[in-house]
Design a binder for these strands. Structure first.
Lengths: 211, 211
DNA sequence: TGCTTTATCAGGGTTTACCCTGATAATTTT
DNA sequence: AAAATTATCAGGGTAAACCCTGATAAAGCA
């Protein structure tokens, strides 16, 4: 019997998956979690065979949670479920130790298949996720090695203000720092996020939910 | 007996809601639809009492579908289900004729309540949706009357390229038009989308999925 | 057939963003 | 304690974005 912990903030979806799994003889839903902290608590409580994890949950950005789950319960397997199937998200979840990745559009039968595969020690990726990774590889994913996406607190603050349409001068006045300093932060953001201009900063900030 | 058509591209969610509704005596799921065109066909086929509509479906932007559903089957009631609960989306769906709005995070029991209320001729909005509208009203939603969000084909093209980090000169070369023309389109975009600068254009484009 | 929108282009101007180099002090990490 | 990162600032420059006014031809709608 495979024990599964469901982590998703969409209660209806949660109920749906539970109903789906309960029809199966070999899989059992032991508990629910609807936000980041709760997932970690429940993982500690149950040490489930598998965690079905939605990375779009509020609070934390999913990525962190993935690593922490494995710290708490290293024997647990993680199947990520997401709206996005872009290379960035897929690759990062794999780095963090996830064992499978499916998008929410998969058919119920495919989800069960994924659960069984991942629980049995194998990996599973649906077509969308596979394609995203492949496309990411062929188009040369440079942003990984040089950026690694570690923004400082100040940089995040500047980025947030950029998305909110502030000019550099306005930010300088607002934060009581020099225009030159703001421009330096902008330059570093462009480099770290591998963007060409403001448009790129905003797009990436929104794609990766850095705001 | 209330007949319901489920429109959502997440098959698992679809199954979940179906399972939830099937336990109820007074509500019946007559069919599914997983993308825009299918919704319209199925609405024509069944003329359901209620359409449970996800506005994040691929293909069309939900808003249009809402109006078309009512053209095909004016007696049908529409309950919108969405990830977003921002004022922009909520208000626009109401304009298009939706009768209720809930976010996907609602509890199963609340969804059933919403279905019954909307089907019986009343309206229903969950807390999140209500709050979003209220906040939108107090902060003065100017973008509605002056823009109305009707972008021309060329403007959408330019906007897409802006999001992709192209400069005006690059767009001019790419589209075989003058730099001045591109700048004019940019100016019109700023005005129509009520943005101050490129950052705003990109943010709005991504928020409203205009790309 | 008119009316409206769309798409195109221009001159001339100000502001903002972006790029380069180089620097110092404070904080955090190792 | 040493090393790395972060936050701060400067001079001096080019490119891009933004703002104003004004205009014409084509396409779409009434």
């Amino acid at each position: 019997m495979t024990s599964v912990l469901l982590a998703d903030d969409h209660l209806v979806l949660l109920e749906g998956i539970k109903g789906l799994i309960e029809k199966e003889e070999d899989i059992e839903v032991v508990d629910f979690a609807t936000h980041g902290e709760e997932v970690l608590v429940k993982v500690g409580k149950w040490s489930p065979d598998l965690v079905l994890l939605d990375i779009n949950m509020p609070g934390k950005n999913g990525m962190e949670i993935c690593g922490k789950i494995l710290q708490i319960s290293p024997a647990s397997r993680i199947l990520v479920m997401s709206m996005h199937s872009d290379a960035y998200h897929v690759q990062n979840m794999l780095k963090k130790g996830a064992h499978g990745y499916i998008t929410k559009g998969v058919a119920p039968q495919e989800m069960l298949k994924a659960i069984r595969k991942v629980a049995s020690g194998k990996s599973y990726f649906n077509d969308e996720a596979t394609r995203a990774v492949m496309e990411g590889l062929v188009s040369g994913n440079k942003q990984e090695e040089k950026s690694e996406l570690k923004l400082s607190r100040r940089e995040k603050e500047i980025l947030k203000l950029i998305v909110e349409e502030r000019t550099s001068q306005e930010m300088a006045d607002e934060l009581f720092i020099s225009l030159k300093t703001v421009e330096t932060h902008r330059r570093n953001l462009l480099s770290k996020l591998n963007a060409r201009n403001t448009a790129g900063l905003v797009r990436i900030a929104m794609e990766r939910k850095l705001v």
